[in-house]
Design a protein around this nucleic acid. Structure first.
Lengths: 326, 326
DNA sequence: CCAGCTCATGGTATCGCTAACAGGTCCTCG
DNA sequence: CGAGGACCTGTTAGCGATACCATGAGCTGG
């Protein structure tokens, strides 16, 4: 920086100003400094800047498994929003979802002086970790439950599940069975609740939900059980991958979709339209959730308290896996 | 730090040593210092440390689309390896794959003083960007082509494609058609080359490869064309998602898999075993690639030149989408 | 014509840490 | 018994930027 200053015939302080508050420097001086910057290919040292300002321009994301479609898409959305605002994203993935690891993840990021942290861990245990936060660190949660001590951006799982369920009922099905995600996952319980309420609202019988682990494999195994029940004519599955397993199980058992059984998924993964049959599902706009989370974090960093919860509405996408009740 | 030193009755320098070279401090002193550290919940300021040492403990990953299965898995592998070595990962995703954006991505990371960069952009344009690197910055590429000026970790696409093709030939098919990924993607051209060489090695006719864009949609559209050709009895598809589209197109056209047509994919996404029929495919161990890339980078950071290319062998997974020639 | 203001720039201290060297103890060994 | 070395610990000097205050030039208006 000293070199740049010398080449431009100014002091280091002026160089600093050109880079941080250009309007406070006379245009001609500014031009000379910028020319010197280019000439020497000068780049400010962020470490030094962080040391004195306390802000790094880096935000941290704590996440569990970034190979799952949802978290990966959310991360992507966050990263894009961050890029547009000249923020960089550091990630801390967790070997397991529990309070201790979440706390460690946040600490790991904090030790690198991130300006704030977004937690993408839609699991009950996250709430634990979020209850004891280092003071002064802005934190935002994605997909978390209610009454968290931090702002939350999330897809309205409840509404999406209710919508899917009502769609099936409107096709004449007596009731709707549910294959849920693992217990303690916020998304999973939100979908169970939405499904249940939609059934109850119409006075339908509420079957005991079955529990999978998000994988196509579990969908297949549980699907085989469901396929044997002649009562079952409509299934709301908590995500598309499990729905894929269910579809295969139904087919192997000789039950046709949608003629004998209707199936709805959740997520709308890009391949859902090419399942056999193309899957009716609930689309989550993960990218939007990521952007909203980033915006919330930006507000918190700026000291704005603002609203604490941003809900993104999911959308029912009707394809060919649902049809009128047999 | 000063406070810790005072509480422990030592100088700041000794505190620093306890944290960075514990063996150089007498055990009892060390214990006193550590006690003081805990007592005050002291955490070293990484910015100050970076400023003086020049090393940050952060590595950067430049990547294109982290919602794709391959890149996401690779990123995950890198992150896990990094975590085990107490490194943090910052990501810079690119809005488009070309030289300029790659350069900008690397610059963005460099400006945050990362210790090194891993580029996950298996596209020809990446090579351009890697040819003009800031001197002194350790860089490793994932999945890149040959003769790059940096070390590369990659799955052996050529071998995997050849294996898939030979599998189909061994089932009695006269030749094998290929639905490739987009041109200029390194993976895509590696698979084309492996497929072609396997056919030529046995003196088979080499059909003109068809070109998709990795999506199930493109697989479906092109699959419809292939399905109309009675000659086509074996198709090697460049990834699982396109293979899914092909499977659907074949089914809609009334061609049975594997009785009439055999299909092989590439990737082995977790759902591949639940396609209809379960997909024979080539498994890529992305996690291992990520680990290898991280290791290469660690070597480069340490100044070790070492080997420049680490190949991970893919594995053919035979399921039910392939059968003997009709 | 000068007080008083604005505007652009510079000087200095400081952020929190570690490299490099200096100094002090205590032991070893000829 | 004293020189020399091993082993700890402390002192000093930055790393590269910005915050804060000071300074001086040029303008305005009574």
């Amino acid at each position: 920086m000293e070199d740049v200053a010398e080449l431009a015939g100014v002091s280091a302080m002026t160089v600093s100003r050109v880079l941080n508050a250009p309007e406070k420097v006379r245009p001609e001086t500014r031009a000379r400094v910028l020319a010197a910057v280019r000439e020497l290919d000068y780049r400010p040292n962020s470490a030094a800047r962080v040391l004195v300002t306390g802000r790094s321009g880096v935000l941290g994301v704590v996440c569990f498994d970034t190979t799952l479609y949802g978290p990966a898409s959310t991360l992507f959305g966050i990263e894009q929003a961050a890029r547009d605002s000249d923020y960089l994203v550091s990630i801390a993935s967790l070997p397991a979802l529990n309070r201790s690891w979440i706390t460690r993840g946040i600490d790991r990021l904090r030790s690198q002086s991130v300006d704030g942290v977004i937690v993408v861990a839609p699991h009950e245990s996250a709430a634990e970790g979020l209850r004891h936060l280092p003071p002064g660190l802005p934190v935002v949660d994605v997909g978390g439950g209610t009454d968290l001590p931090v702002p939350v951006a999330a897809v309205d799982q409840y509404a999406g599940a209710a919508r899917a369920t009502r769609h099936l009922l409107s096709l004449g099905h007596r009731t709707v069975w549910h294959l849920s995600g693992p217990p303690n996952w916020i998304d999973a319980s939100g979908r169970v609740a939405g499904w249940r309420s939609a059934l109850e609202a119409e006075g339908r019988e509420v079957p005991e939900p079955l529990v999978g682990d998000w994988t196509a494999h579990s969908g297949y195994e549980i699907g085989k059980r469901l396929a044997r029940e002649p009562d079952v004519t409509a299934i709301f599955v908590a995500n598309d991958h499990m729905a894929m397993g269910v579809l295969r199980a139904l087919r192997e058992t000789g039950r046709r979709v949608p003629e004998d059984v209707s199936v709805v998924g959740f997520d709308d993964v890009p391949e859902a339209a090419y399942f056999w049959p193309p899957l009716t599902t609930v689309r989550q706009n993960f990218g939007e959730v990521g952007r909203q989370a980033f915006q919330l974090l930006l507000d918190r960093i700026a000291g704005v308290e603002g609203e604490a919860r941003r809900m993104v509405e999911p959308e029912l996408v009707v394809r060919e896996s649902t049809g009128i009740s047999p």
